[in-house]
Design a protein around this nucleic acid. Structure first.
Length: 595
DNA sequence: CTAGGGTTAG
């Protein structure tokens, strides 16, 4: 679908500013709020942000009351490595020998005492540089653990304070990659004093591919070749998968040829990536042909190969072909495994065929496989979706009595069902019981219950839960803040919603359509359609694609404010462009326009 | 370190 151009709205903005209505004179226009979001400046004094006593006021770069910032439990120690007097700090460890200190460091890292390890590295760096330096091994381990809790800046200082080897650099590169700091990762690789190894490059390439930066990843491959580092089958396999996603499997085939030319032999994983790419483009028959050609390339298909094709057949709803392929798998020495069955269960459940799915579940042991939580969860999900909570609960019992304990996904499914079924309090209770059930709540668990609370009108409790997750070291994501934003907007607390919006930007994440829509709706309901249009302009100029809901919100907003003619024009234009579907319009906007 | 299966916002 073509992106809709905002041109139609420009004139509306102008029209509106020529004839401002009185309420706008006494309220901040959204231009200013948007400017604040962009430049993180204060909103006008006329509209002081409301007090948010429920929220902690942690430091933040913008003037709105802060939403919680993810923070580790212990205060971050300062590393004053450039400062020789650091060794004399109160916590400094008496210097014996580099070897003894490194033994101690190893122990601290192994025990997970990161603060102690940091202090020790600090003190070692503060000593006579010729006498002692932290060894690369324990430093690499420390860097890994710091990065695992998001403390990449401290990890970087450890790297600078020790005598790093390739492994220590690799740990840091990986840390930057998993936290999305890909440009830092690239710069670090470029600045390495020793030759990066294949692992270094593979980590960087995987990071870039994982964030859709396939072009950069391919450039790294070129760097690698130029610097005489030999890419291995893993390097190419990562790049092939990304190439399939970005440019399609035909382009990937070219890279496959290049790989062979460079003397790197594809393995079955490489080929399965291609098989998957072909299936993703809906060409299951071509995928089967490709599969048949593998033996002539010296590679035998495995069960995974067949599972991929089977998934393609199920997606195309070619059930009979799927059944035939299952039979063929056994004949060809690639018998179905638990993943095969789980896939079938999942597809059947998605089509509402729960009973057949349960029959498959029963048959799994006959094939010598053991059902796991992925076998049970889709069925559990189906019961929940049908609002058959008693059956869902009974099914969990069955699961346990069969020796398969519910995992966090099972519980998340139950949490969703409880929230949707109006039992939010039960959901909150279950969330807090998870630890006792041997399951740690994850981001999705909190997002689910936070959403349930906002929809039940319990926004304050939702904010408390947001606090709780941060305290537990769980980093909120864009879904968390979108949920919170819509909850706040529903209560006309738009300033606070915008603060959540800023929080997302602070995290280095580009707000998406859902988040914009939440705030647009809030503004329109407050009859600040003019401000909404400004925000819409900001949204488009920041490359965020509006969707049907965006337009519906704006059209309804115009209609609410009495700008019926403009609303009709916009509706007509969007309909003719096919951006807004007839059904949606009939449901919402038209009805309002006629009223 | 690379391939196939389940859960969250609208």
């Amino acid at each position: 679908m073509r992106p809709a151009q905002p041109t139609g709205f420009r004139s509306l903005v102008e029209k509106n500013s020529e004839a401002p209505r009185s309420p706008r004179l006494h309220r901040p226009t959204h231009n200013l709020i948007v400017a604040a979001a962009r430049a993180k400046m204060a909103p006008p004094a006329a509209a002081p942000p409301p007090a948010m006593s429920a929220l902690p006021t942690l430091a933040s770069s913008h003037p709105y009351p802060s939403l919680p910032t993810p923070k580790t439990a212990a205060p971050k120690p300062r590393l004053t490595l450039a400062y020789a007097g650091a060794a004399a700090a109160p916590n400094a460890v008496p210097h014996r020998s580099a070897a003894a200190s490194n033994d101690r460091l190893r122990g601290l890292v192994r025990r997970g005492d990161l603060e102690g390890a940091l202090r020790l590295v600090e003190s070692m760096a503060g000593l006579d540089p010729s006498a002692a330096a932290a060894a690369p091994g324990p430093c690499a381990a420390l860097i890994k653990k710091l990065c695992a809790s998001g403390r990449t800046a401290e990890a970087r200082r450890v790297l600078a304070a020790c005598e790093p080897d390739v492994m220590a650099y690799n740990a840091m590169v990986a840390g930057y990659c998993v936290t999305g700091q890909l440009d830092n990762a690239r710069r670090l690789v470029a600045a390495m004093p020793m030759e990066p190894d294949a692992y270094t490059y593979n980590t960087l390439i995987r990071g870039l591919c994982g964030r859709g930066r396939t072009d950069n990843a391919l450039a790294v491959l070129d760097d690698m070749l130029r610097r005489g580092c030999v890419p291995d089958v893993v390097t190419y396999t990562i790049l092939l998968e990304a190439t399939c996603k970005r440019s399609g499997y035909k382009q990937a085939m070219k890279l496959l040829d290049e790989m062979r030319d460079k003397g790197c032999a594809p393995d079955i994983i490489t080929y399965n990536v291609i098989v998957n790419g072909i299936c993703q483009e809906g060409r299951v028959d071509d995928a089967m042909e490709f599969l048949k050609s593998l033996p002539s390339n010296g590679c035998e298909p495995n069960t995974v190969s067949y599972n991929i094709v089977l998934k393609g057949l199920c997606t195309a709803e070619r059930w009979e072909d799927a059944e035939k392929l299952m039979a063929e798998m056994s004949r060809k020495g690639c018998p179905p495994n638990v993943v095969t069955f789980n896939m079938l269960i999942s597809f059947l459940c998605r089509r509402g065929l729960v009973e057949p799915a349960m029959e498959i579940l029963d048959q799994i042991p006959k094939y010598g496989c053991t059902p796991n939580s992925l076998s049970y969860n889709p069925i559990l999900h189906a019961f929940c979706k049908q609002k058959k909570m008693d059956r869902a609960m009974a099914f969990v019992e069955l699961m346990v009595s069969s020796g398969c304990y519910p995992d966090i996904v099972s519980y998340n499914t139950l949490l969703t069902a409880l929230c949707r079924g109006g039992e939010v309090d039960a959901a909150v209770e279950l969330l807090h019981q998870l630890k006792d059930k041997g399951c740690t709540p994850v981001l999705i668990s909190y997002n689910t219950v936070i959403d349930g609370l906002t929809k039940a009108g319990k926004t304050e409790e939702a904010l408390e839960l947001l606090n709780e997750m941060v305290t537990k070291g769980l980093q909120p994501d864009i879904i968390t803040y979108s949920t919170i934003s819509s909850g706040l907007c529903r209560e006309d607390r738009i300033e606070e919603a915008i603060k959540a919006f800023c929080k997302v930007q602070d995290m280095g994440i580009r707000p998406n359509t859902v988040l914009y829509n939440a705030i647009l709706l809030g503004l329109c309901k407050r009859r600040e359609t003019h401000s909404a249009i400004d925000l819409f302009t900001y949204m488009v100029s920041n490359g965020c694609m509006p969707n049907e809901s965006t337009y519906t919100i704006l059209i309804e907003g115009l209609a609410y404010e009495g700008l019926v003619k403009e609303a009709r024009e916009m509706l007509a234009e969007l309909c003719s462009r096919g951006v807004v579907s007839k059904t949606l319009v009939n449901k919402g906007a038209i009805r309002l326009l006629d009223a």
